[in-house]
Design a protein around this nucleic acid. Structure first.
Lengths: 344, 344
DNA sequence: CTGTTAGCGCTTTCAC
DNA sequence: GTGAAAGCGCTAACAG
């Protein structure tokens, strides 16, 4: 029943008895024809069921598509971080919308980034994609890229000042007199293992990694308090998951002397550690204090409320989008807050 | 430093001293040349930094892109439903990947669907998009569409058997002797109001809507138990939100005689109703029983645990993707489970 | 304001 | 296997 003729700019122009340039202009360059004429043409197109120039052709011709892809860390993990990612997207979407740029979400666990590169003007990459091929491809591609919460050579990025934030958080925690400290690092070394980082030389080659920055912030605060920590009290956790964190927690809690403070590089890790400590009958913060990083909802509704670092995600999204639209390849830092809960 | 020459099929062919048809075939039609030759060409391309034919041009020429867009209900709401949406995406992604089709996520609150239509082969639409323009556009577009959890004329869809599920759930609830029942329907009528549906003729024109199917399931079970319910005990709720649900709950709970069972068309509605009942000092299930629909995480971690209908989301994703790839315009039903909690 | 035209990068005949 | 050529649907430059 649906007599869907497939209209093209050309066929529409022919049908309307005007030149195709005129139809094109009606859609793209209002200043090139009279208001009246433009409205007539637009109305006629609507009537016919022609919704405007084919974007694929337009993009081929122009070399730009007005679409940017937001690469999520992982369609799953993404959802776990819940309001954080959601706020970030909102921030990005708001700015792009104002500039009439469309936003596409791409799962960081997908494997065929090449299938979409040619359709977008560039990428905003939110956190390190789970699938490492993606980063590899990204590095080879010659398109505008903004990374968020991690760094990529030659690309603009939005981060918090991880070093300073880690420093501030640790200082906060060390207001309570402390002797023994443990650190649960996230991807401090290359190996996908839960283990201690005895040898600082093992540390991941990428000196600018988030993990490094946070670690050096922790260490700076610790040494300013006249304390020390060595490798046998620094754990590597390969992925921010409860499972790995629980493994490390079991190890750390059975150490003698038991740490009085565990500094974790993510809320997920901290929460799992708190649960493990509680399962062992330890009281928080009396017996042991545990702090996180991220400021997730879950940490803030936990009993005891998690002491952690929180960042303004909407703002982060806004900055990332603005950075994308501007052409500057700068590395930007945004604000953070230390959330003081009862956990540490 | 980065001498990034922009390679095209043509320039590569010229550079390699072969015809462009050969290069094209090397990438797209392995059977058209010898294995040796193909490997040589592919290797040479990799060396040069040519990653294959430009997809935009390819898509323009072929008329297909091997990309499908998954329209999310809303980038925010999407995250709230957490493991459900996540599982669904996983199901979809798994199937598409097997067929080398790329998946794009599109926020249901975006406003420029037209910007991407020409880049994708079609849409899987997961739940009613928040922005109603999207559905409107979708209806006009001449592309393959599969809807999930709702129906669109002439489109394939994946749903549970809403009628039967509603019937089963109600039967379960009516194992407890009941006299007075209320129903909180979701979009039963066109008007965006919280109100009672005195007149069955008001009911939304779309006879196949989910709301209708569920309602008729409820009613069938109710009448089989020798009970009756009239319009003054059937509420319309325009949107699955706590706010609207709370409004309806206040009305219903102040009715005399007070309903002993409230059947809600979504978990969100049921949870808000439970909260309102508890705020009024009512005990659940002793004073009043409340059941939902969806089987969300939140409902299952609620005290009392929600009695509701749950569906297998991974499977739903798989079916949706398969339906998309097959060309059939069928409406499919998938399994569901009645989750028996303490709420009803 | 209109009409003509080249060409964005590719695929796919077709004849060799 | 190759090379030539048409054309997917469009934009932008140019001449009228």
């Amino acid at each position: 029943m649906n007599t869907k003729k497939k209209w093209t700019l050309k066929s529409v122009a022919l049908h309307l008895g005007v030149s195709n340039a005129t139809v094109s202009n009606a859609f793209n360059r209002p200043d090139q024809l009279s208001k009246q004429r433009r409205n007539d043409i637009l109305a006629a197109c609507k009537e016919l069921g022609y919704f405007g120039p084919n974007k694929a052709a337009q993009s081929l011709r122009r070399g730009t598509s007005n679409i940017v892809a937001l690469i999520l860390p992982d369609s799953v993990q993404y959802m776990v971080s819940d309001p954080v990612a959601s706020s970030f997207i909102k921030g990005v979407a708001g700015v792009l919308e104002q500039h009439n740029v469309s936003l596409l979400l791409y799962s960081g666990s997908s494997d065929n980034l090449l299938d979409i590169v040619d359709f977008v003007d560039g990428f905003i990459c939110y956190g390190n994609p789970r699938n490492s091929n993606i980063v590899e491809h990204l590095a080879q591609i010659n398109k505008k890229i903004v990374t968020v919460d991690f760094d990529l050579a030659d690309c603009a990025s939005v981060n918090i000042d991880n070093q300073q934030a880690a420093f501030d958080l640790t200082n906060q925690s060390l207001k309570t007199p402390t002797e023994h400290i443990a650190i649960f690092g996230l991807r401090l070394i290359e190996q996908d293992l839960v283990c201690r980082v005895y040898d600082q030389n093992q540390l991941n080659a990428e000196k600018n990694s988030i993990a490094h920055k946070r670690l050096s912030g922790y260490l700076r605060a610790i040494s300013q308090h006249g304390l020390a920590i060595n490798g046998e009290r620094i754990w590597n956790i390969p992925e921010s998951s409860s499972e790995f964190a629980t493994m490390a927690a079991k190890e750390a809690l059975s150490c003698s002397p038991r740490p009085e403070l565990i500094i974790c590089m993510s809320d997920v890790i901290a929460i799992a550690t708190i649960r493990q400590a509680q399962a062992q009958g330890l009281k928080i913060p009396e017996d042991i204090r545990i702090v996180g990083f991220d400021g997730t909802q879950e940490g803030q509704s936990l009993q005891p409320r998690l002491t952690t670092v929180h960042q303004n995600s909407v703002d982060k999204g806004i900055r990332a989008a603005e950075l994308f639209l501007a052409k500057k390849r700068v590395k930007e830092n945004i604000d953070y807050q230390i959330l003081v809960g009862q956990s540490g």
